[in-house]
Amino acid sequence: MSLHDHFNTSVKFNARLLQEFYDSYDEELEIELDDLRLEAGASPATTAEKQWRREYFRELLRLQGELVKLQEWVQRTGYRLIILFEGRDAAGKGGVIKRITQRLNPRVCRVAALPAPSDREKTQWYFQRYISHLPAAGEMVLFDRSWYNRAGVERVMGFCTDKELEEFYRSVPEFEKMLSRSGIKIIKYWFSITDEEQEIRFLSRINDPLKQWKLSPMDLESRRLWEDYTQAKEDMLERTHFPEAPWWVVQGVDKKKARLNCIRHLLTQIPYESVELPTVTLPAREHKPDYIRTQVPPHMIIPEHY
């Protein structure tokens, strides 16, 4: 490779790394970051890029409006819903979960992201620690990783034995079919990204002080063991895909498209309808002539720096 070609490759790589930085923040910040990028003289977005960006935000808001309708229907009907999000590290699961829950009531739609099992939990029935997080009537639970840790990270990192893995594969269809028979809807998503895309996202985290906390030694090890994770994923999808709880694969290289596609697909999997809500009337404030307001002491008020 010539010096010129190497330079061009480096420029393109750095530009892609910078784009990953911009894409990783919330919608409100993304707008401001784009403005700052233009003011700083960075490569301006093309007309097509700007148009797509507008379409993305418009469609995201529309889909979030549908999610609010879904929430009202779930609450009114007593529907019980589980959504599992699995995928490689930095595949974009957290970004989709954030957009789904962004405008929903956390009492209706909650996220379960369990830490590594404690010493006591390691001695329990494998599925036991997940039971308390299952939805009651009128609830949606989003699992940011789930019991499928056994088929992925635990298998690859050697945290379970071959016997325990095979027992998991025997038990998980029975477990999920039992949940389905009890009236719980299960939707399972696998977020797929390329080797190159994961590398970009990991480098972005390494070089961004606001995101370095996302990187753990386990994440770095998963990068080294890419092919082992690939084999584990292929086995998992083959052995745990069945009608009561099928797997759905989300192409996650383009984060924005992945978010829209996943949310849109989710909405098609549930027979929700618009729910007529009661009219809300703001009551008039009562005024009590004998009430005298007590002033807050100045020393209790925080300084107004902004």
Rank of each mutant, 00 (worst) to 15 (best):
S2T: 12
S2N: 15
S2W: 07
L3F: 14
H4Y: 08
H4R: 13
D5G: 13
D5M: 05
H6S: 14
H6D: 13
H6E: 15
H6R: 15
F7S: 10
F7Y: 12
F7Q: 14
N8Y: 04
N8H: 03
T9F: 09
T9C: 07
T9W: 04
S10G: 11
V11D: 00
V11M: 01
V11K: 02
K12C: 10
F13Y: 06
F13R: 11
F13N: 03
F13I: 05
F13W: 14
N14L: 14
N14C: 14
N14G: 09
A15C: 05
A15E: 13
R16E: 05
R16N: 12
R16D: 11
L17T: 00
L17M: 10
L17D: 02
L18F: 14
L18Y: 07
L18A: 12
L18P: 04
L18D: 02
L18V: 14
Q19P: 00
Q19A: 13
Q19K: 04
Q19T: 04
Q19W: 03
Q19D: 04
E20H: 01
E20S: 00
F21E: 00
F21H: 02
F21S: 00
F21A: 01
Y22H: 09
Y22P: 01
D23H: 11
S24H: 14
S24N: 08
Y25A: 11
Y25G: 05
Y25P: 02
Y25W: 11
D26A: 04
D26Y: 04
D26Q: 08
D26C: 08
D26S: 15
E27R: 10
E27K: 06
E27S: 12
E28D: 08
E28P: 03
E28A: 12
L29W: 07
E30A: 08
E30W: 01
E30M: 05
E30F: 00
E30G: 04
I31A: 10
I31F: 08
I31Y: 07
I31W: 08
I31T: 11
L33A: 03
L33T: 06
L33R: 03
D34L: 09
D34K: 02
D34E: 07
D34T: 04
D35E: 13
D35V: 15
D35Q: 15
L36G: 00
L36F: 07
L36C: 01
R37A: 12
R37N: 00
R37H: 02
L38T: 10
L38V: 11
L38M: 08
L38G: 03
E39N: 07
E39H: 14
E39Y: 05
E39L: 12
A40L: 12
A40E: 02
G41L: 09
G41H: 01
G41C: 07
G41D: 06
A42F: 10
A42Q: 12
A42W: 06
A42L: 13
